[in-house]
């Protein structure tokens, strides 16, 4: 079977996740096509973040399977999913604030040069790649050497997105990408998401802001108490209906 660009690129089938006696996810399903933006909504504790962390390899599911380009995959670390082109922007951003922007973007995948049998960091190349990538995304910072702790909330979010897109991602998962941002910074992030979609990247966006969901999504799905509750193409639903789903009500 060959992979077709109209096929589903990522699928979660019957995924459950238990933390001790707590059930975070029960038999949930999700699918995503290339170039599609899927909005995921749900109340606090509905299991959105947990499902995304399973898809990014940070958590191992207790039951169920994940399929990538039609093939079943097992992730034992985020490195495994990254190698397939699945990147995640975490809600708490997951940046090392003590390190410069460039170090964060390339953390775990640093450019190196060989020196005999040894590999040393290629500081020059990292700086150059960082500057190129930031300007491609139209992200303005004083310098690629600035430490993340010196940046504003919006700039940090931009660095986290830059990090997720620096390696030709096929899928980018974003957990509440606009939650911590000032109003004028939100539009910038939504533009970044649209830019990814145009590149054929599949994007999953978790957000509790209906404006975000209705601005960028092609399709929206709701989780409720750890299970699939409802799903629809965006144009076939309304804000009121989606808000109802979040509260566990179907009209």
């Amino acid at each position: 079977m060959t992979f077709n660009s109209s096929d589903i690129i990522l699928e979660a089938r019957g995924v459950s996740k238990y933390f001790g006696t707590i059930t975070a996810l029960e038999n949930t399903n999700l699918n995503l096509r290339p170039g599609e933006v899927l909005g995921v909504v749900g109340d606090n504790g509905a299991g959105k973040s947990t499902l995304m962390k399973v898809l990014s390899g940070l958590f191992k599911q207790s039951a169920g399977s994940i399929f990538f380009e039609g093939k079943k995959v097992e992730f034992s670390s985020p490195r495994d999913s990254q190698n397939l082109g699945i990147e995640m922007v975490y809600q708490d951003l997951a940046l090392a604030e003590n390190l410069p922007i460039g170090d964060n973007i390339f953390l775990g995948r640093e450019p190196t040069r060989n020196f005999g049998p040894f590999k040393f960091l290629d500081h020059k190349k990292r700086k150059q790649l960082t500057e190129e990538h930031l300007s491609r995304l139209k992200i303005n910072v004083k310098s690629a050497d600035q430490r993340v702790e010196e940046l504003s909330g919006g700039q940090r979010q931009a660095v986290a997105i830059a990090r997720a897109t620096a390696f030709d991602a096929k899928i980018v998962i974003m957990d509440e990408p606009t939650a911590a941002l000032a109003v004028k910074e939100v539009g910038k992030v939504l533009d970044l998401i649209k830019g990814l979609k145009d590149l054929g990247v599949g994007v999953i966006v978790i957000s509790h802001r209906m404006d975000d969901i209705f601005t960028v999504s092609d399709r929206v799905m709701a989780l409720f108490q750890g299970t699939n509750f409802a799903e629809s193409q965006l144009r076939q639903t309304s804000r009121d209906e989606v808000i109802g789903w979040i509260m566990g009500k179907k009209i």
Partner: peptide, 20 residues
């Protein structure tokens, strides 16, 4: 790389873990 990771772990171990 490992040296850089040592600093990253000190800055934010969750970020290091998320970076694989």
């Amino acid at each position: 790389k490992i040296g850089k990771w040592i600093y990253a772990i000190g800055g934010n171990p969750e970020a290091a873990r998320a970076a694989g």
